[in-house]
Design a protein around this nucleic acid. Structure first.
Lengths: 147, 147
DNA sequence: CTCGCTGCAAAAAATTTGCACATTG
DNA sequence: CAATGTGCAAATTTTTTGCAGCGAG
């Protein structure tokens, strides 16, 4: 997944952001795991590699925020944390399947699984899911106020 | 939605729990709104009714936890908070659609919407969604350890 | 009357904000 | 050099825990 780091850097620069040590580290950490990482967990993960320095939690929050905005990372809720986006180039839907045992996460692309919420990717077993739509309610369709 | 309160009480008792003032209040608050309520927001909501007393936040957390366990409430993530479960009797899937403008939430039952993630309930417009599956990964299928 | 439930105090965890200083391009 | 980005301090918010006393059944 060195691919990811390269693509992330490209996107970052394309959007006018600078490539800094902190950002590289966060990107590297996300690329190196298939579990959800909280900011603290991410730093812990980085420390294992004994780098000269590790970014501050605040910075990690800010970088994750940026990566999310750029479509390079997703926040997951079933298990709290962030994961690298496997298909940043895809603007469409990104679904995740999270192992209840070990926390491993796989990204399920596009409309896959949409047709049958109980069909899992090869090798996985689906037990349940969380599905939340965001949209506009009838009330807010018209005026826009919404009370 | 007095229906909800009645059903909630029944379920609570059936499961061997006591019906207390705090629980009644939390249930009433959930029944009275179609937005996600955080524990603090829920108490705020209750205060508007000028009751003699309002439950402590800790208690609200505990009650929400219990209601979730009993299938009487759902936690939502797109907007942080809890909502009453519209169909407690349904053991199956519960999906939510949340208005990005006003926060209004509607529950979408069963497998509805599953076939086409872009089809909305009457009057609603869908913009995006969060879909997370929980399950078991290939690694954890066998041994069960999962590393 | 008994055990479950609640409130209070307090700690722990998660997230946000402001500002002076360091760094990238 | 001029933004842009970072660290540090600190405040805020959210969630969890322990325990003594209250109240539902």
């Amino acid at each position: 997944m060195d691919d990811y780091a390269a693509q992330a850097e490209e996107r970052l620069r394309a959007a006018g952001y600078r490539m800094t040590r902190s950002r590289q580290q966060v990107i590297a950490a996300l690329a190196a795991t298939d579990r959800a990482l909280s900011p603290y967990a991410l730093i812990e993960h980085l420390r294992a590699g004994r780098p000269r320095t590790t970014p501050d939690v605040v910075t990690v929050y800010r970088v994750l925020d940026l990566l999310e905005t750029l479509g390079l990372a997703h926040r997951v809720h079933t298990v709290p944390g962030w994961v690298a986006c496997t298909w940043p180039e895809t603007d469409g839907c990104h679904h995740h399947i999270i192992c209840a045992e070990c926390g491993r996460i796989a990204e399920v692309g596009g409309e896959d699984l949409a047709a049958d919420l109980h069909t899992a990717p090869a090798g996985w077993t689906v037990r349940g899911h969380v599905l939340e739509y965001s949209g506009t309610c009838p009330e807010c369709q018209v005026g826009g106020a919404g009370g």
